[in-house]
Every structure is written in structure tokens, then in C-alpha cells.
């Protein structure tokens, strides 16, 4: 097996397209190295993405945020403007693994590993994140929603990689949150994950809502029916229960060693509701902070 550490996007795409299916890009390696060890994957070439400037660093501009696809969870957690703007995305990224894993695990890897249970993905979908892809055919922008096709399967073309993730500056009254269920506190795989983002008017009326669930289908799913339960209303407990019921109804999970189908279905609703409550609270806090400062 060969290892390459290109310094530019062109070089990386060149290496990947030359080697074809036998090559594998690597960011933190926290999924990939485990797969190499168990023999689940046997690539001939590893292309390390961490030395490519475009995949590193976080930019916080007036338009919004650009998060390099290879940036580690630890770095994301330390970026205060991002944390302030999209706390749900940051808390999801920080849930990945443990302190050791946090030093390496990236959003690009979490998404492209294409696990239905990846923690950052529902939060990114809920926040409306878009990723930039680059490959032999050039550059394109794709919403995170459309990347994962099924377990281990992505919409990426051959030799195509994710360069970065874009998030807008949140509008007034925006709030997001991510909740996951694992039987322990860390080092485990989500039995259910739920990301919610909302935008509420100062009156409390819900103007926008996105709900995404992880680990309850073959891929992370966006559940617009659940989001619709809040839209145009002041979300009271009845609306939130409606959201929970619809989230559960949209779940189509498997029964496995990690959790039963019945359990996952039920808890999908609970977590969607809890994430929505937290997102609403954060949105409310934003309005409160604004009126205080003015």
C-alpha cells in the first residue's frame, strides 16, 4: 500500500484519478484506518487530504462560514463564531468519538464514510449546509442532504472529493440543535440522532424549520412532514408532540445489536422533539440578546 500527501487539490485529484478504484482519500483516518485493520477495505493508495490548504481551516466571513472538509472536531469546537452561529452543528461534530478521536475526525470523513448513524450529518442537513465537491470534471456544489445514498455509498464521482462545507450567517431568530441517543456517554454509535434548525419571528411564530434524523433509515433523512408541524405556529407542546409523532412515522430503522426497530422508531420522535425544543430555546435567546443590546 502506498501513501501520498499531496499539497494541492490538483495533485490530489491527479493521484486519485490515476489510481482509480484502488485509491482512497483519507482525512482523519478514524474510519478508514479501522477499516484497513479489519480488512474491510484494502486500497492500494491512500491520499492524505490534510496538507491541502483548501480542505483546512475555517473562514468566518460576512456571508457565512466555510469549513474545510478535513478540519478536525477539536478545531470546530474551538471556533467561537461558528459555535455562536450554529451551535447544533458544532455540538454534533463534538460528539464524534472521544478526546483522541476529536483531534482527527473530520466532517468530510463523517459524511463520506456514509454511515446512516454519522452524528454531524443530520445537524448539517438541518442547518442547510452545502458542500463543495471537486473532481476530474471540475467543481460543483451539492446540499449535504444529497450526498449519502445508502450505507457506505455516496453520490461522489470517481476521484471526486469534498473540499469544504458552507453555512450561511444565521438570520435573526435562528436556532439549531442536535441530540443523539447512545447507551453510554461517548465512544458509541448513535441509535438515533436528530438535528433540528428553526427560525422564529420575534412573536415566537415559527417561520422556518428543518428536521433531519440519523440511524433510522439506510441514510440520514430529512423529514419535512415533521418540520411542517411547527411551521406558521407558535410551537406549543401540542405542535411539538405532532412533530415527534411525524418523526417517528418517518423512521424506518433496522433491528440490530445496537437497538430494536421499535425502540429506534419511538426514540426518533423523542429526540426530534427535544432537539426542536432546544433549537427554539436558542432562537428565543437570540431575540432576547438582540433586544437587550438594542
Amino acid at each position: 500500500m502506498e501513501y501520498a500527501s499531496p499539497r494541492s487539490l490538483d495533485e490530489a485529484i491527479g493521484l486519485l484519478s490515476q489510481a482509480g478504484v484502488d485509491a482512497r482519500p483519507m482525512a482523519g483516518g478514524t474510519d478508514l484506518l479501522v477499516q484497513l485493520r479489519t480488512g474491510a477495505r484494502r486500497p492500494e493508495l491512500l491520499v492524505d487530504l490534510k496538507q491541502i490548504p483548501g480542505l483546512c481551516g475555517i473562514d468566518c466571513g460576512s456571508q457565512g462560514f466555510r469549513i474545510g472538509a478535513a478540519v478536525s472536531g477539536a478545531e470546530i469546537g474551538e471556533c467561537l463564531p461558528l459555535r455562536e452561529a450554529w451551535p447544533g452543528v458544532v455540538e454534533a461534530a463534538e460528539l464524534i468519538g472521544s478526546t483522541q478521536i476529536q483531534g482527527r475526525a473530520s466532517l468530510g470523513g463523517n459524511l463520506c464514510n456514509a454511515s446512516p448513524a454519522a452524528d454531524s450529518v443530520p445537524a448539517l442537513i438541518a442547518a442547510g449546509a452545502v458542500c463543495t465537491l471537486i473532481g476530474p470534471a471540475g467543481r460543483r456544489e451539492v446540499p449535504v442532504d444529497d450526498i449519502v445514498r445508502g450505507p457506505g455509498e455516496t453520490a461522489l464521482g470517481e476521484a471526486e472529493i469534498i473540499v469544504d462545507f458552507r453555512l450561511p450567517r444565521p438570520q435573526d431568530g435562528t436556532g439549531d440543535a442536535y441530540q443523539r441517543m447512545i447507551p453510554r456517554t461517548e465512544m458509541d454509535i448513535a441509535i438515533v440522532g436528530a438535528g433540528v434548525s428553526v427560525r422564529v419571528a420575534e412573536s415566537g411564530e415559527c417561520l422556518a424549520c428543518r428536521v433531519a434524523l440519523g440511524a433510522v433509515a439506510a441514510r440520514p433523512i430529512r423529514v419535512d412532514e415533521a418540520a411542517a408541524a411547527l411551521m406558521g405556529r407558535r410551537p406549543d407542546s401540542e405542535a411539538l408532540e405532532e412533530l415527534a409523532a411525524r418523526a417517528s412515522a418517518a423512521a424506518d430503522p433496522i433491528d440490530d445489536k445496537r437497538g430494536t426497530r421499535a425502540y429506534r422508531t419511538r426514540v426518533a420522535g423523542v429526540l426530534a422533539r427535544r432537539a426542536a425544543e432546544e433549537a427554539l430555546r436558542r432562537a428565543g435567546d437570540r431575540w432576547a440578546a438582540r433586544s437587550q443590546s438594542s
Binding site: P183, R184, T185, E186, M187, I189, K257
Partner: peptide, 11 residues
């Protein structure tokens, strides 16, 4: 140890 769930320190 991923799916054989012994407690971790923070549990």
C-alpha cells in the same frame, strides 16, 4: 469494544 458496551470513564 464499540458494540460490547463496557462503561467508559465518563459514564
Amino acid at each position: 469494544f464499540l458494540d460490547y458496551r463496557m462503561p467508559v470513564a465518563s459514564d
